[in-house]
C-alpha cells in the first residue's frame, strides 16, 4: 500500500515533465509543416474520401450514410494504432533522458498516449465536418462521446505499457505488432457492416474484439444518435481495466532492467 502512495507522490512530482513531453510531441509534429494543425483534420478526411469511393458501392445497400459509419470506426482504430505504436517506442526513443537521471519511466509512455489523444480531439473536428457535409442528424447523445474515449484511452494505455516494455527487450516486437495490427484492422468492422460476416466470425468479433466494443458505442452515439448499449459500456470498461492492470503490472516488474538494454 505504502509503495503505491509513494508512486502517486512521484507522479505528481513529475507532472510538469509530463506536460513538457506532451508539448514537445505536439510542437515537433507541427513545426515546419505548412498546413500545421490542419493536418490532423485533413489527413483523416482524405483517407475517408478515398475509402468511401472504394467501398461505398460495395456496401451501398446495407449502410446509409457510409462516410459517417466509416469515419466513426476509422477514427477510433487510427487512434488505437497511432497511440500504441507511439507508446511502443516511448522508452527506446527517450533513452537519452532515461540514462541521464532518475525519472519514473511510465511518464514517457503516458505522454505519448496523451499527445495522440490531443490529435484525436483535432480529428473530431473532421468528424463534425463529415456529419455536416453528409447531412447527418445531430442529437444530444453526441455529447456522450467522452465516455467512449475514456475507455479507449485506458485500454490503449494498458496495451501501450505492455508494448513499451516488450520493445525494450525485443526489437522485433515492432514487426509482430505491424502484422497483428493489419489482421486486427480487417477483423474489426470499420469499412464493412458486421452483418456481412459469417455467423461464427461475427460471434467471435462481437465477444472477443475489444475494439468492436468501443466502435459500437461510438457509432451508437454519432451514427445512430442514441445512448450507447449498456452491455458494451460494461464490457468495454472491464476490458480497459484488465488491460491497464496487466500493462502496469508487467511494466513495473520489468522497468528496472530497461537501463541495461536501451
Amino acid at each position: 500500500m505504502y509503495i503505491w502512495f509513494a508512486r502517486l507522490k512521484d507522479f505528481f512530482h513529475y507532472k510538469d515533465l509530463l506536460k513538457q513531453l506532451v508539448m514537445r510531441d505536439i510542437k515537433l509534429k507541427y513545426r515546419r509543416s505548412v498546413l500545421g494543425y490542419l493536418w490532423s483534420i485533413l489527413d483523416p478526411l482524405l483517407t475517408m474520401i478515398v475509402t468511401t469511393i472504394v467501398f461505398s458501392s460495395m456496401f451501398k445497400r446495407n449502410i446509409d450514410n457510409f462516410p459517417v459509419y466509416l469515419f466513426c470506426g476509422q477514427l477510433l482504430f487510427n487512434f488505437f494504432r497511432a497511440s500504441t505504436s507511439q507508446a511502443m517506442n516511448s522508452i527506446n526513443a527517450n533513452s537519452s533522458l532515461i540514462k541521464k537521471a532518475y525519472v519514473p519511466k511510465y511518464i514517457f509512455t503516458f505522454s505519448k498516449i496523451i499527445s495522440t489523444l490531443i490529435d484525436l480531439l483535432f480529428t473530431m473536428i473532421a468528424l463534425l465536418i463529415v456529419m455536416i457535409a453528409t447531412g447527418a442528424k445531430f442529437s444530444m447523445y453526441n455529447l456522450l462521446f467522452p465516455i467512449v474515449i475514456f475507455q479507449l484511452v485506458i485500454f490503449c494505455l494498458g496495451v501501450g505499457l505492455f508494448l513499451a516494455q516488450a520493445n525494450v527487450f525485443f526489437k522485433d516486437v515492432q514487426y509482430i505488432y505491424n502484422a497483428v495490427m493489419m489482421a486486427w484492422m480487417y477483423l474489426t468492422p470499420i469499412f464493412y457492416p458486421i452483418e456481412a460476416l459469417p455467423k461464427i466470425v461475427r460471434d467471435i468479433i462481437v465477444h472477443f474484439n475489444p475494439l468492436y466494443y468501443y466502435i459500437k458505442q461510438f457509432r451508437d452515439i454519432f451514427y445512430i444518435g442514441t445512448f450507447p448499449e449498456i452491455k458494451y459500456i460494461f464490457m468495454g470498461s472491464i476490458m480497459s481495466i484488465i488491460m491497464l492492470f496487466l500493462g502496469i503490472a508487467i511494466f513495473l516488474k520489468k522497468q528496472e532492467q530497461f537501463i541495461l538494454h536501451i
Binding site: 512530482h13 513538457q20 513531453l21 515537433l28 537519452s96 541521464k100 537521471a101
Partner: peptide, 29 residues
C-alpha cells in the same frame, strides 16, 4: 551530470530544452 548531451532533444530549441531538462531533473515549470 552524467552523459554529455543526454537529456537534450536534438530537434527542440535550447529554450525548450532548458525546460524539458529541468523537468527531467524533477523541477517544476
Amino acid at each position: 551530470l552524467i552523459e554529455l548531451g543526454a537529456g537534450f532533444d536534438a530537434n527542440l530549441t535550447a529554450r525548450e530544452n532548458i525546460y524539458l531538462n529541468g523537468c527531467v531533473l524533477g523541477h517544476t515549470e
